[in-house]
Amino acid sequence: MKKLLVRAPMNDESLERLHSLFTEVVYMPWTDTGERFYEKEMIACLLAERPDALITELDVINETVLKGYSALKFIGDCRASPENIDVKVCEKYKIPVLCTPARNANAVAEMWVSTLIAYERNLVDSVNWTKEKQWKPGTTPYHLWMGNEIYKSKIGFVGFGAVARNIAKLLQGFNVEISFYDPFVTDSSEYKKVGLEELFSTSDYISIHLPVTDTTKMMIDRELLSLIKKDSLLINSSRSAVVDNEALYDLVASGTIRGAILDVLDSEPPLESDSKVADIPNILLTPHIYGASHQVVDHHSEIITQRIIDYLNEQAAVAGDRL
């Protein structure tokens, strides 16, 4: 193939490898041009550059785009799942879509552990208390901000893919008991596989790691949430749509559940009706940043480049050649 258009940020090493595979590589990542391209901008970009292949991360690729430009031989998407791309339409046009699964698994895992510790050790409130000059003679911060250790706790994962497994590895030094629910994971020799009801009713920390599908939408409903122990926490760093959040907010606000740590909301950025969750004292809310590390660019650069090499090798093998 002659020309590759790169619309995702990539590291120099991977760009160099891609230059060896294509006659021309045009590097114009969204981080330079400013946010994603929607239909009109994407079609204009493709018609101007006329690439044989595309690497993207945020740009919208749907039928309108592919009708406007139909010469792509494949699309590389620097995301764990191609939420910005209509995969069914790509299949219709016979355009393979290559993704980068687990590109931010380590970033999410590190953030998961750090926010849980921050929550349990009252980090945010104690820092704000100190900055607000509340540490005065007669105060006893050692007792005022005394928190909980996660040592020897029971942690249950709903969904046990790359992110959950990375978290489990990081937790090995905390001597925790790990269980998981995942009908697609059969190898449970290292960790305990349990049913959903058992996981929700016995875990000290319940962590959600589910994609949004017809099966998983609102899967974590009020009935399941009501099984959570009063002193337990729910952590959701995957997708908001898999949880009945109205039920979760009610249960936390009423004290039925001790609290929650959330990196996702039903609307992002939140609508005024959604922002009430930020006012619930026992919910730690972050703005969907668990996977946001500078190193993720290195991870997805390496993964997508290798996937492209493998794909081109497969095509070359069919033609009786090899890269």
Rank of each mutant, 00 (worst) to 15 (best):
G138I: 06
L123V: 15
W145G: 09
V124N: 11
W112M: 10
W129Y: 12
K136I: 05
L123A: 14
E120M: 14
T139W: 01
G147W: 01
V113Y: 10
Y151H: 02
G147D: 00
K136N: 04
W135L: 01
L123P: 12
W145M: 08
P141Y: 03
W145V: 08
E149T: 09
K154W: 02
N122V: 10
T115H: 12
G138V: 11
S153D: 03
V113P: 04
I117K: 03
A118D: 02
W129D: 05
V124P: 04
K152E: 11
K136M: 07
Y151I: 12
N128L: 15
K136P: 00
E132P: 05
W129V: 01
V124E: 11
W135Y: 13
S153R: 04
L144M: 15
I150K: 01
W129F: 13
P137C: 12
T115W: 13
H143D: 10
N148I: 07
R121T: 14
T130W: 02
W145D: 06
K131Q: 11
T140Q: 12
V127F: 08
D125Q: 08
G147F: 00
L123C: 12
Y151T: 05
K131V: 15
V113E: 07
I155L: 01
L116T: 09
K136H: 06
Y119S: 02
T130K: 02
T139A: 06
G147C: 01
G138A: 07
T130Q: 04
G147H: 00
L123N: 12
S153H: 02
D125C: 08
L144I: 14
W129R: 02
V127W: 08
H143Y: 11
T130N: 09
V127T: 11
A118E: 06
V127N: 06
T130H: 02
G138E: 02
V127I: 14
K131A: 13
Q134G: 05
T115I: 11
D125M: 07
T140G: 12
Y142T: 14
I117H: 07
